[in-house]
Amino acid sequence: MYDHPGELSAADPIRLLAVRDTPLSLDEVFAAVGDPAAGGTALFVGTVRNHDSGADVDTLGYSAHPSAEAELRRVAEKVAADFPVRALAAVHRVGDLVVGDLAVVVAVSCPHRAEAFAACRRLIDDLKHEVPIWKHQRFSDGTEEWVGAC
């Protein structure tokens, strides 16, 4: 049994969800998950790296299905139901990006650090597996590939 209401999930812990074509902000996501009952906040930042599977990446583009935000909400609601989430935020970029750009930022705050780490990991893993966002990589040798497209 919990000794304090702050040990429980917040009534509405989903504070920020978006799929957008503008640069992402760590400060915006971190601020969105601030909660005085949270003792742990976990943040994951996915950036465009300069290589993949042994090939040099020049640029990439993300595309999203029109249902992407609704699916992101479904994923977020499941995480919030499975963990004592005080606040949750997730934003994913679409459009053309270059090496070093932020592609995705997710954050979760919970009463304790272990819960925050676990919830954040589930959030990013489920986002990547279930939200219909596809990556089109362009390599320096002129080749390209789609990742995540069915």
Rank of each mutant, 00 (worst) to 15 (best):
E69I: 10
L26R: 15
G39N: 04
K135C: 03
S109V: 06
A87R: 12
S53F: 11
L123F: 07
G6T: 13
L97D: 00
R93N: 01
A64S: 11
R93G: 00
K78V: 09
A31L: 10
W146Y: 10
G46K: 03
L8F: 05
D101F: 05
N50W: 10
G95N: 08
F83M: 07
R113T: 04
K128A: 09
P111H: 03
E77C: 10
P5G: 12
A18S: 14
G34Q: 15
T59D: 08
L8W: 07
V131A: 09
V75P: 03
G95A: 08
F83C: 07
C150L: 12
H136W: 14
R73Q: 12
P132R: 13
R93C: 00
V99N: 02
D141W: 05
P5E: 11
V57P: 03
F30N: 12
L16E: 04
G100M: 03
V19M: 08
V91F: 02
G61Q: 06
H65R: 07
A10P: 11
E115K: 00
V79G: 09
H4P: 02
P36M: 08
A89M: 03
R15E: 09
V94E: 03
A70G: 12
V99S: 01
H112P: 08
I133K: 09
G54E: 04
P23E: 05
V147C: 14
R86V: 04
R49V: 06
A81C: 04
K128D: 05
A103G: 08
V106I: 05
T22H: 14
S9G: 06
I124Y: 06
H92A: 07
S140W: 03
R113S: 01
P36N: 06
C110E: 03
G54M: 06
H129F: 12
A64C: 02
H136C: 13
R15H: 06
D125F: 11
V99L: 03
V85L: 11
V105P: 10
V106F: 00
P84C: 14
D27V: 14
A55K: 14
D56I: 12
L97H: 00
A80H: 02
R15I: 07
D27M: 10
G54T: 08
A31W: 01
I133Y: 07
R113M: 02
A89Y: 02
V147L: 15
F44M: 06
A42Y: 13
H4E: 14
A64V: 11
